[in-house]
Amino acid sequence: MSATPRGEEREVKNIGGASIDGAPVAYIVVLAAVVTALAFIPFSVVMASGGSFPMNQGIFGLIGWVLGPIAGAVSSGIGALIGVFVAPHTAGVWFVTVIGAIVTSFAAGVMGTKNEKRKSWWIGVVVVTVIAFAIYVGRALLVNGIRLQWAILATFVNWSSLLLFILPTRNLVAKWIGSKNLVLVAVGLALGTWISFGIAHTVQNAFTYTMFNWPEEIWVMLSSVIPIEFISRCAIGAVIGTGVIVGLRAIGLVKPTEAIY
């Protein structure tokens, strides 16, 4: 302000408004509805569990960056759960789908947190992901006798995501998403979607592989299919996310406490 106002400056807070972890419930509901709506749109013909994956998988990360880890996980989880019922053609294994939504948004929300109390939450995500990776790949190598080369290739998205999450790229992605440069925002969203969904994919596969134990022939095929699917998720995240973030910044609605855009 050019001149100091005479009135006393007041602390601005949202009193009594319904919110979860600093994100207005209205935002959570709206984004959950978007997740459900995008559940109707199949985006691939192949998936490890035998179905198609829904377009909403491209925005779970975005929801984490917009709402924060807890509200984002709640919103994505509710949206994905409703999506399982109303769009069963993209649902796959229902609880795995919901877990994937929750973990992606949570991991994304943790990536760029400015909340000092949450600076170490990423370690928890890493621990869970490492355990899930051990169950998934360990079972493949030790129980089902999958050759190492195919295990490494088919899990490229999983270990690359984990590495990028552990390295400073975690914070770099968050910095880019918060940048004024829209190219950096888009790149950040794409890379962040790779990382956050890669984390969730690892957790999901700990369940689905235990259930389906797909043979080595499938691992061979997945080594090329999964990265392509991931690229399409990243494209969805970047395209939709850039538009959403530009709009949110322009309209200037109150930002959820944990938002990083």
Binding site: G7, V12, L253
Partner: peptide, 12 residues
């Protein structure tokens, strides 16, 4: 204003 929009508020 300001509970929903945020920003800086002075006075009463």
């Amino acid at each position: 204003v300001p509970q929903f929009y945020g920003g800086r508020f002075f006075g009463k």
